[in-house]
Write a protein that binds this DNA or RNA. Sequence first.
DNA 1: TCGATTTTGTTTGCCAGTCAAACTTAACAT
DNA 2: ATGTTAAGTTTGACTGGCAAACAAAATCGA
Lengths: 403, 403
Amino acid sequence: MITRDLGAGRPLRMRVFDYIRASGPVSRARVAQLMGISPGTISTITAELIEAGVLEELPDRRKASVSPRGRPPVSLAVRADAFVVAGIKLSIRDRTAVLLDCAGNRLAAAQADALSGSLTPTEQIDAIGEMVEDLLSQSGRLRSDLGAIGIGLPGFVQHATGHVHWSPVLNEERIDLGRLATERLGVPVTVDNDANLVALAELWFGLGREKADFAVVTVEQGVGFGVVLNHELFRGSNGFGVELGHTKVQIDGALCRCGQRGCLEAYLADYAIAREAAVTLKLTETAQPPIPELIDRLRTSADAGDARAAEVFLRARRHLAAGLSTVVNLFNPTLLILSGGRLRYDWLDAEDLLAEMADFTIKAGDPPALRIHEWGDQLWAQGAAALALSHATDVELGLEAVA
Amino acid sequence: MITRDLGAGRPLRMRVFDYIRASGPVSRARVAQLMGISPGTISTITAELIEAGVLEELPDRRKASVSPRGRPPVSLAVRADAFVVAGIKLSIRDRTAVLLDCAGNRLAAAQADALSGSLTPTEQIDAIGEMVEDLLSQSGRLRSDLGAIGIGLPGFVQHATGHVHWSPVLNEERIDLGRLATERLGVPVTVDNDANLVALAELWFGLGREKADFAVVTVEQGVGFGVVLNHELFRGSNGFGVELGHTKVQIDGALCRCGQRGCLEAYLADYAIAREAAVTLKLTETAQPPIPELIDRLRTSADAGDARAAEVFLRARRHLAAGLSTVVNLFNPTLLILSGGRLRYDWLDAEDLLAEMADFTIKAGDPPALRIHEWGDQLWAQGAAALALSHATDVELGLEAVA
DNA sequence: TCGATTTTGTTTGCCAGTCAAACTTAACAT
DNA sequence: ATGTTAAGTTTGACTGGCAAACAAAATCGA
């Protein structure tokens, strides 16, 4: 069975590396089988990769072989210590960062409050530089081990060029953040919109390793969205990412923080739930608690039998179902992953949501599988690291070919 | 400047052929420049294609060259008479068919009322066979000239396999229409969902020749939708096409003929306008005229100053704008093409619609260009022919390589 | 008139990527 | 020992593409 039949036109060397990194220790024979590539080719390529120092043979001779007969297979794995990458998620509230080895293991993590909402590019880059130093010293790695840095940030970001058209975390517009940071930090830096990070994290470390096509929707402060088509993140035709939170589910509906009305986000995001909570809990006259607490209190009321409180959540779920049905109608993914902090609430139960979504969807073929991944806070940063990892391995393997 | 940089992993031979077919007579030098391929390669490939009989040099030596100096270029063009293809659009009302030569020129057209709503696969195939014979005799072509037939039909169709999961024009489910028709008609037959046909027609004969990514929305009996990504029709992950007409623009909104509520189609399609027309024109108590007439009368009233009648159209436009904004948010196309019979009405003026759509869309980068293409009735069949053309040339060129 | 110039198109040699098939190696079974 | 089986390697060939030298066909200019 061929799992990864298509990998665009990328060199087979990279695809083989990706495959081994994603699937963990495998024998050459299995790689050949599963990728549908001839064993001879795999031999040649893996030899190159071992030579380049990014793969290694595992002495471990557990029963990786199918039958007990025959020559036992030799497992291959990425040399985790070949290099490390850092991923950083910027938001107006804080910064989260992780350090991964090139097998994707987390070596260190860090978090810091944002110095202020928006900074000059230089300040922001320097702050990132400090976090990276911190990560390196935490894990006892050298600066020279660092292969690349990935940055995820909100706003309009062109991944391919590293150009940030606008972002709330920068007080200037139209910044070539990728180039600037690469120069200032002395390490290749790649940049992407934060909404893509979770999809990227899933693609590299999560369920996406097995799936060619899936979509990720995150619900938290806002509604994030990422689509993977044919093992690659779809960034839309103009290079800016895709956007789900501001599609209209209700013309002239609820007011969204983007200024428009009827956006999906305006029914679903933290602030949307919170403003309904304030009314439902009759807190409009008093000082209001912070948003997470407000939502927790609303949930408590609902669980205690308050029908009006429960209705707020049901309404949100219904709108989420409508949003998801749009995704299903337009992209037909085989898998739909839901992620984000709000998903620990049981009102977002997969079964119910799926049923509600099915009501909204034209039935053609099988409905997509729906998976809910709560994950930790560092997921975003992990996605940013995947960004870096992708770049670093490509460069590493690309250069090796030149040398 | 490189126009068609990416054509998936298809053989260059086919891509060159497609390019020449799409762009009309071109010199080798220009093809090389515009495709970003070395002139030597183009020479080799075009020699093969000429040898295979699908391309020819044009003796015409008009000033195809840029400067008057230098060796004059020799234009290449597809040999229109190499073979012909037929495209057929099936609906529950009628059948439309066209015959194209392989340069895309229309040689003949035919139309017939459907014998009855749904037929057995065999009846349907035989009816198609008759239409094709008619087309051939109209144009004086031989049956042996026919390279392929393309069929577009409503329902759930898997293009890759030719499998029809369900269609209103067939009275059986799960039919391998592609295989059955190929066997019975003795010519390769490809099958696709009708919503994709217009996109395909644009891709092959219309604006899509220059654009790598665009989306097509049709408004007529229903709302059709097709997306082209990277010069290829996007068919969703599960092989069924994408669907826009039944995305929700209003939860619990207007009743749609699919049985759900709030679908885009329920505000926009013929029947949706018609049912509002019936109320607005106070015709609910009398026998109602057919839908097209109803719409025309409503338009007349609106033009005569009837505010309520005008409001029906404005509301439809507003919902269309919302639907288009969803497409823009999720796919980021650089071009959006509107097509279909209803577009002759001026209420769907491109300027106004674009402005309204901009209001609904998050502003990242440039908004897509919006083009309105009314086209004729045969557009759909033309798309079906494109389907056949695509298949026939691929096979033709593929076999040539084997031989 | 006859190169010089300019552009188009062809030929050649070369290289990378890949496969098929023959071959080698390492285990177990008898 | 001698097979048997599966894993991995080597070899030779083929394909698709490029670069660069080359050939051809026109105009320009002295």
